[in-house]
Design a protein around this nucleic acid. Sequence first.
DNA 1: TCAAAAGTGTTGCATCTACACCCATGG
DNA 2: CCATGGGTGTAGATGCAACACTTTTGA
Lengths: 237, 237
Amino acid sequence: MNLNSQLGVSVDCVLFGYNGDAIKVLLIQQKTQNGGTLQESGLQMALPGDLVMPEEALSECAARVMQELTSIEGVFLKQFQAFGDPERVRKKKDQRWLETFRESPNKRIITVAYYALVSLQEYKPEASSFAGSTQWVDFDKIPPLAFDHNAIFNHALLTLREHIEPHHIGFELLPKKFTLSQLQHLHELVFDKKLDKRNFRKNVKRMNHIVPLDEKQTGVLHKPAQLFAFNPEAVSE
Amino acid sequence: MNLNSQLGVSVDCVLFGYNGDAIKVLLIQQKTQNGGTLQESGLQMALPGDLVMPEEALSECAARVMQELTSIEGVFLKQFQAFGDPERVRKKKDQRWLETFRESPNKRIITVAYYALVSLQEYKPEASSFAGSTQWVDFDKIPPLAFDHNAIFNHALLTLREHIEPHHIGFELLPKKFTLSQLQHLHELVFDKKLDKRNFRKNVKRMNHIVPLDEKQTGVLHKPAQLFAFNPEAVSE
DNA sequence: TCAAAAGTGTTGCATCTACACCCATGG
DNA sequence: CCATGGGTGTAGATGCAACACTTTTGA
């Protein structure tokens, strides 16, 4: 027997979504074959993911998982780390679920983790039937997850913090037209600290990739804010 | 037939070494089964790496590859990216070599890449018999490599640039006792630009994890430099 | 007219850059 | 005594943090 046949590769995705109010993460609810919901039966939530298909690139696999889950194409996706501990899917707490749908639940799985960003205002991602029901959970209230998914999530959040400023990816979480207050609020959530409004706006004005539009907010019960857009062409570094 | 058996996972390592003068990268020379040297026969150099063994963690695999190659234990190792294009080991130029030592040369291989750092002054890593002969090559004169190894190397260098300052890993490339000129020279090489001596030293003095020793250089034909050491305990962030 | 968020400048302090000369050693 | 790199300070410019009031809209 070829021992390598006992080794699989999967992709797991940490999908962050921002709804203008809070940052959420998409989790799937584990579900037994007979369809019963499983919180009560000790089953947990997990990050969405799937085994990599034989001729599928890793990034294609991540895009497929996101597409199956949210029906959105073109989600921003970034690989950040592979997790390969031989025991990572062999803990007792995880066996029960694996047994319900994997041929060889003891097979070693190496996973390549991606984080993904989506604006929950722009799109309304619907939970599909993927592996059970899905749920948007506040990113600072993530429950204990299956496998090593808590470690993966923590790593994703650290990576997002490192990347959001220099790689100009915060805009992926915002609608195409956004206000500076929304942008600031998003950063305050990511870094978990208050920012000074005047200093923040001073910095934004120095970035020529954030361009003001000839358009204002409507339908708000206060002074309507100027709208801005991200111009990827103008990224100067 | 289980299609997954056609999928393997390897680890490739970009080992950077600094000898006080230049930054080198360890490459292996491809070698045919009959032991002939192969540059003339169109064979290339490659990054060291190996297939992950069935019950081996990724980091263990990387450490093993480094150990087999350099006979050094405890080399600094950091995973930075997985490369999983299904075609990455299937280019014509690479088939010849793979045929000489892999059972299924067409098998898809996903590789997890690590970079590693070693001081060539502290240790004298000897090339072992690993997969052919090895060679330290100037990091700015890397030749065309096998597979996608040039892309992996480029990614490693970018990652090293991002990590060297904030993660305090430059010291892994230096002897335990080093001078500020050595430290500066190393940074100049990594970032490919000249730095101002006085400003550089001013910055270093503010870092309390770089501590002066009661010791000076000897055997140099100029004013002997103060020696410094890195104190990982004192990393304040 | 009230509530709610938008929008706007200045000042002091810390940090960064640019720059040139004397020192200690070995040969 | 000469060649070689080691070692040091200052001034001007720039960037960052702290801080409070006026404006516009819808209800």
